[in-house]
Measured scan of single mutants.
Amino acid sequence: FIDQHRAALIARVTNVEWLLDALYGKVLTDEQYQAVRAEPTNPSKMRKLFSFTPAWNWTCKDLLLQALRESQSYLVEDLER
């Protein structure tokens, strides 16, 4: 899901800070967390977050999807259609 809908997630996720907090310490290191937060816009934050995903396994991507479902369920539901 995460890889399949990358472009839509970059464009449409609005609550990136919540995602970062949910992933911090589980998937994201402090350095990665700070790097994403330093980006000026939500799309650039999501691009930076996605720059780390090639090194993630399915469990990490599932944690991101779970966080998306909790914070932006309407968006996930729309993309699952």
Score class of each variant (00 low, 15 high):
Ser71Met: 07
Pro40Thr: 11
Ser71Tyr: 06
Leu19Asn: 04
Leu19Ala: 10
Glu31Phe: 02
Pro40Ser: 10
Ala7Phe: 05
Arg6Glu: 12
Pro40Phe: 01
Val13Ser: 06
Ser71Ile: 02
Gln32Leu: 00
Arg47Trp: 07
Leu28Cys: 01
Arg37Pro: 03
Phe1Thr: 05
Asp21Gln: 13
Leu28Gly: 02
Leu49Thr: 06
Phe1Glu: 03
Gln66Ile: 12
His5Pro: 03
Val13Arg: 02
Val76Ser: 00
Leu9Asn: 03
Asp21Cys: 07
Phe52Ile: 06
Thr41His: 00
Asn15Asp: 12
Leu49His: 04
Gln72Leu: 05
Leu63Ala: 12
Leu19Lys: 01
Pro54Asp: 15
Glu80Cys: 09
Glu17Val: 00
Glu31Trp: 07
Phe52Val: 05
Leu68Val: 06
Glu80Asp: 12
Lys48His: 04
Ala35Asn: 02
Gly25Ala: 08
Ala8Gln: 13
Phe50Gly: 00
Leu75Cys: 02
Val16Ser: 02
Ala35His: 04
Ala8Arg: 08
Cys60Leu: 08
Tyr33Glu: 06
Gln4Gly: 04
Val36Glu: 02
Glu17Leu: 01
Trp18Ala: 15
Thr14Asp: 13
Glu39Arg: 04
Gln34Tyr: 09
Asp78Ser: 12
Gln4Leu: 09
Phe52Pro: 00
Ser44Tyr: 00
Leu23Met: 08
Leu49Gly: 03
Glu77Met: 11
Leu79Gly: 01
Asp21Arg: 09
Tyr33Ile: 13
Leu49Lys: 02
Ser44Leu: 14
Gln72Ala: 11
Glu70Gln: 14
Leu19Tyr: 15
Phe50Glu: 02
Leu63His: 08
Val16Tyr: 00
Glu70Leu: 07
Glu17Asp: 14
Ala22Phe: 10
Tyr33Lys: 09
Gln72Arg: 04
Leu75His: 05
Leu75Asn: 05
Leu23Ile: 06
Pro40Val: 07
Cys60Tyr: 10
Tyr74Gln: 15
Thr14Ser: 13
Pro40Asn: 08
Ala7Glu: 15
Ala55Trp: 08
Asp62Thr: 08
Arg12Gly: 12
Asn42Asp: 11
Phe1Trp: 00
Gln34Ala: 14
His5Asp: 03
His5Leu: 13
Gly25Glu: 11
Ser44Ile: 08
Phe1Asp: 04
Pro43Met: 12
Leu64Pro: 00
Leu9Gln: 00
Ser44Asn: 07
Ser71Pro: 03
Tyr33Val: 15
Glu80Trp: 08
Asp30Glu: 14
Trp56Gly: 02
Glu70Gly: 06
Ala55Leu: 13
Arg69Thr: 06
Glu31Asn: 09
Leu20Lys: 01
Gly25His: 11
Tyr33Pro: 05
Ala67Pro: 04
Asp30Pro: 11
Ile10Lys: 01
Arg6Cys: 03
Val76Phe: 05
Leu9Gly: 05
Leu9Met: 06
Leu79Ala: 04
Leu68Tyr: 03
Val27His: 03
Asp62Glu: 14
Arg12Gln: 12
Val76Tyr: 06
Leu20Val: 08
Asp78Phe: 13
Phe52Asn: 02
Phe52Tyr: 13
Tyr24Gly: 07
Tyr33Leu: 11
Glu77His: 09
Asp3Lys: 02
Lys48Met: 11
Ala55Lys: 14
Leu28Glu: 02
Val16Ala: 03
Val13Pro: 08
Glu77Phe: 12
Cys60Pro: 05
